Amino acid sequence: MASNDGDIITDWLVQNEQVFREPADFLAFNSYLISEFGVAQATEEKALIIRYALLRWLEFHKQGFVCIEMEDILDPGTMMRELYHQIDGPTWDKEALIHVLSDLSFTSGFESFELEDGRLYMKRHLSFENEIVKWLKNVDYSLDSFLPNRGISELIWNEYTEWVAQEFSDLDTPKKRVLAHLFSMQFFIVTGGPGTGKTFTFERILKSYQRWHPELKIQLAAPTGKAAKRMNESIDSSLLDVYGEAKTIHRMLGARHDGRFSKGVKNRLISDVVIIDEASMIDIDLFIQVVRALK
């Protein structure tokens, strides 16, 4: 890729392709930004600041972050530190950076960006994040919320927790705690490092649902076909006969060729429970579709 004469950023990107996992994406995004500013204006100070900030945003975006803090733009890390110094980044301050980035709009169809509380978002991601936060705040975390009209009496609750302790005596305390919360929360996340037994715990979750509320419709899902296959392999076939095999999230939501989904606000999933493995692999663009499709 030929650089523009005197363009510090393009020259640096071309000379340092090896530091990026997907250098073509950074080069293409940089070319797009140059076309937006115009070749002559792209090397002016304000344009250099914006281009650097958005390339830094792209670096974070590729790591799964929804936004980037102003402090992270001003602290270039190891990958872009040399470029940051070449364009006099250390002379910037947070307020000046916010001022420069406060009005980013593009003419050729690329999505606009927006600042919120010192964080730079792609505008649609900020909207999705706010929608998810609102949904989480509306989730009822009271004891009987998960099974409306099927109130869990204290006697039955005690019986259930005793059953968990006896039936799954091989589980450690954190995993038993997960099972204890099955009927007391509408939404929860099971976290843990690789090999700690998150997927293994799913089978125990399904056994608990089958024993105490066999009428529930349960959908198993994962972000990729490989993850769905691994999920199916970790669950007893007799349980899969009852609840069905795990699907990819795209298949669960009815992905269409135009990029849209058949499931959503107007056509929700019929499942009472949705269990998703490897949820950390889900980006916000897909997770918002899951949220909208839930009952």
Results as ranks from 00 to 15, higher is better:
residue 10 T to R: 14
residue 10 T to D: 15
residue 14 V to Q: 10
residue 18 Q to S: 13
residue 22 E to I: 12
residue 29 F to I: 03
residue 47 A to T: 01
residue 48 L to W: 03
residue 50 I to Y: 01
residue 51 R to M: 10
residue 55 L to V: 05
residue 55 L to Y: 05
residue 60 F to C: 05
residue 61 H to I: 00
residue 64 G to L: 12
residue 70 M to D: 10
residue 76 P to K: 02
residue 79 M to D: 15
residue 80 M to C: 05
residue 84 Y to Q: 13
residue 89 G to D: 07
residue 98 I to S: 01
residue 102 S to C: 06
residue 104 L to N: 07
residue 110 F to S: 01
residue 111 E to V: 01
residue 113 F to Q: 05
residue 115 L to A: 05
residue 116 E to P: 00
residue 117 D to T: 03
residue 121 Y to W: 15
residue 122 M to A: 14
residue 122 M to H: 09
residue 140 D to R: 12
residue 142 S to D: 13
residue 142 S to C: 06
residue 147 L to K: 05
residue 147 L to E: 06
residue 158 N to F: 13
residue 161 T to I: 14
residue 164 V to L: 06
residue 166 Q to K: 02
residue 170 D to S: 08
residue 177 R to L: 11
residue 184 S to D: 11
residue 184 S to A: 00
residue 192 G to N: 05
residue 212 W to I: 04
residue 219 Q to L: 00
residue 226 K to S: 06
residue 234 S to E: 13
residue 235 I to C: 06
residue 238 S to H: 14
residue 239 L to N: 11
residue 247 K to Y: 03
residue 253 L to K: 01
residue 255 A to C: 08
residue 259 G to W: 05
residue 262 S to K: 09
residue 268 R to K: 15
residue 278 E to D: 12
residue 279 A to Q: 07
residue 279 A to T: 02
residue 290 V to C: 08
residue 295 K to Q: 12
residue 295 K to Y: 09
